[in-house]
Amino acid sequence: MSGHKRFWKDVTVVSDDGLFQPRLDGRPIRLPQGHVLAVRSSALAEAIAGEWGQIAEGTAFTPDFLPLTRMAGTMIERIAPAPQAARDMLLGLGVDDGLCYCADGVGPVAVQVFAWLSGYGVHPSVTDGLMPVVQPEGYREALARLLAARDDLELAVLGVLAQATGSLLLSLAVVGGAVSLVDAVLWANNDEKSQLATWGQDDELIRTMENREKDILDAGMFLTLGRQVSI
């Protein structure tokens, strides 16, 4: 989609076989591998349609304009055909999780996450050093069980959150409702805030923080809207 310009006039949402399709001038949106963009939630479909609708006529756009569309595409074309591969990839991140490195001590957000994880039999080791932490026996298996319960929608969100925050464990707690998006942003941006406090204004660092916050909040919106499915 890079370098494309808006060519459509109308954006609508159509219900078809229990799914909701955002359409451009009545035509389905085709994803890179050819699948039709269709989701189970009308609220999510309307929000995706809104992304396309807010692009001004004749304006060039890139995938950055369409974060909900990107996540839906990942869910449909990459995760749905092979959900276990997505779980295995996420599990690899959780084995050496950023939340387990606490140079300044375990903070309140980490305490919330660890308390929530303990209810699922996940008990990570933490370190205040730089060497890789060795997780206890059974940790990987317990984390795999927790991931096994996540559906395609949640796996798509976890992929974005884990990349943005550097922590699968924190991301799981957000998806599980144990940690707010605001707290996730605060934890993810903590190092940059410390650097700004020490060294002063840094526009590049601020942009990094803003982009990370946007990714986290977009993922939260995708999750919330995607869960609004009528049964």
Rank of each mutant, 00 (worst) to 15 (best):
L99W: 02
L117Y: 06
E137I: 04
Q135P: 00
L186A: 15
G121K: 12
Q112M: 05
S194E: 14
V175E: 08
E154S: 13
A184S: 13
A103G: 10
Q163K: 13
S171N: 03
V182L: 10
L181H: 07
M131C: 01
L186C: 10
A142E: 02
L117A: 11
A173M: 04
D152H: 12
V174N: 01
L143A: 08
E137R: 07
S125V: 12
A148L: 10
D128R: 13
V109M: 09
A188S: 14
G177R: 09
D183C: 03
Y120K: 13
D151C: 12
L153Q: 07
D104H: 13
P124W: 06
V179M: 07
D128N: 13
G98W: 04
Q112W: 00
L158G: 06
A188D: 04
Q195V: 10
G138E: 01
D128S: 15
L158S: 07
Q163C: 06
A173V: 05
Y120V: 03
V109R: 02
L130C: 02
L143P: 00
V175H: 06
Q195Y: 09
F114C: 01
G129N: 08
A162M: 12
A178G: 11
A110F: 00
A188Y: 03
L168H: 04
C102R: 15
L168D: 09
V111W: 00
E141N: 01
S171C: 01
L99N: 07
A115Y: 00
A188E: 03
V126I: 14
A115K: 14
V157M: 10
L147K: 09
V122Q: 09
V113I: 05
A188M: 05
D96L: 11
D97F: 03
A149N: 03
G159Y: 02
A115I: 00
V185S: 08
A148I: 07
E141Y: 01
S180R: 06
D152A: 15
D104N: 13
G159L: 11
D183F: 01
L158C: 07
L143G: 03
D152C: 12
A173E: 01
D104Y: 08
L169P: 02
G129T: 14
T165H: 02
G129V: 10
A162E: 14
L170F: 01
V122T: 13
G176I: 08
L147M: 09
G98D: 08
L155N: 05
V174T: 06
S180E: 04
V182M: 04
Q195T: 06
G119A: 13
R145M: 10
A115W: 00
S171F: 01
L99H: 05
V160K: 11
N190I: 07
L181S: 12
S125M: 12
V175Y: 05
L117E: 11
P132H: 02
L146S: 09
A148V: 05
G177F: 01
D152P: 00
V109P: 02
D96W: 00
P132G: 07
Y101V: 15
P124I: 14
V175A: 12
L130S: 13
G176C: 05
L147W: 01
L99Q: 07
